[in-house]
Write a protein that binds this DNA or RNA. Structure first.
Lengths: 128, 128
DNA sequence: CTGGGCGTTCAAGTACGGTTGAAGTCAAGA
DNA sequence: TCTTGACTTCAACCGTACTTGAACGCCCAG
C-alpha cells in the first residue's frame, strides 16, 4: 500500500544523489543549501544528507528561475511548505509559481500596451 | 498634421535625456549602447546623440528582462526593427516579447504539472 | 582665461548565480 | 596501516548587468 502516512523520508541522499536526480552540479546543491532553498541534515562525519524533498524543490526552482524569479523569491515561496509536504502542498507551490510568472507576463503585457499608446513618439511621426 | 512620413527623429537626445525618459541611469544607457541594444550617433565633440527610438527600446527591454530575457536576446529581437520603426513594427516586437514570455510560463506550467505526477516521491508516501 | 557643467573613456566594484580548485577530513578496502 | 574516493570548507573566479570613480575633453559665461 502506498498510504500517505509513512513518516519521514529519512535524509539518506548525498549531495551527488541530489545533484544527479535534479540535473544540477553538486556545487549548485551546496549553493542552494547555503541560500536556504533546500535543507540538509548532517551525518556524524559532517556530510550532508537530503531527502527527496530537496530534489523536487530544485526541480521546481530551476523552472521558476527561467521565468525571472530569483533564488530568494523562490526560497520565500518554499517557506510556505511544511517539513513533509503533501501533494496538495506541492500543487499549491506550483500554483504560486505559475501565478507569479503569469503576474510578470501580465505586467509585461500591460506595460507594452501602455507603451504602444505612447510609442507614437518613437515612430516616424510627431517629432515633438 | 501628425502624418507618419516625417523622416528621421534626427538624434538630438543626450545620454541624460534618454536616461531620464527611460528611467534608467546614464551609465545604463552607455552600457546598452555598448551591448548593441540602442544606437547613437556622435557629435563633432564625440558626444552621443540618440533619437526617441532609444527610449522605447530601453523601456521595452527593461520589461522583457523581468520575464527572464537577457540583454543579448532582447538585442536580437530588436535587430528585426528597421531604422524608423512604425507602430506596427513596435506592436510586432511587443507580440514577440509577450509570446516569448508566455511560452516560458507555458513551459513552467507544463513542467510543474509533469512534476506533480512524479512528486509523489517527494511527499510523505512511497519511500521508494 | 578660468570656472562650471556636461560629456568622454576605462578600470574597478557590486550583486546574483553559480563553478573551480586547494587543502583537509572521514570511512572503507587492500 | 596506507591509500583511495567521496565528502568538507573556503577563497577565488566566471558571466551578466550594471554602478562608481578617476582622469580627462569640450564649450560657454563671466
Amino acid at each position: 500500500m502506498t498510504t500517505a502516512t509513512q513518516a519521514a523520508p529519512s535524509f539518506t541522499l548525498t549531495v551527488k544523489d541530489v545533484a544527479h536526480a535534479s540535473h544540477v552540479a553538486p556545487s549548485a546543491v551546496r549553493f542552494y543549501e547555503d541560500q536556504g532553498l533546500i535543507q540538509a541534515r548532517r551525518t556524524t562525519g559532517n556530510q550532508r544528507r537530503f531527502d527527496e524533498n530537496a530534489i523536487c524543490r530544485i526541480r521546481f526552482a530551476r523552472r521558476a528561475q527561467r521565468v525571472g524569479l530569483t533564488v530568494r523569491e523562490i526560497a520565500d515561496i518554499f517557506q510556505a511548505l511544511p517539513e513533509q509536504p503533501s501533494a496538495q502542498d506541492w500543487a499549491r507551490v506550483a500554483d504560486s509559481l505559475v501565478a507569479e510568472a503569469e503576474a510578470h507576463v501580465a505586467d509585461l503585457r500591460h506595460d507594452l500596451d501602455a507603451l504602444q499608446t505612447v510609442t507614437i513618439r518613437c515612430t516616424a511621426g510627431t517629432v515633438r
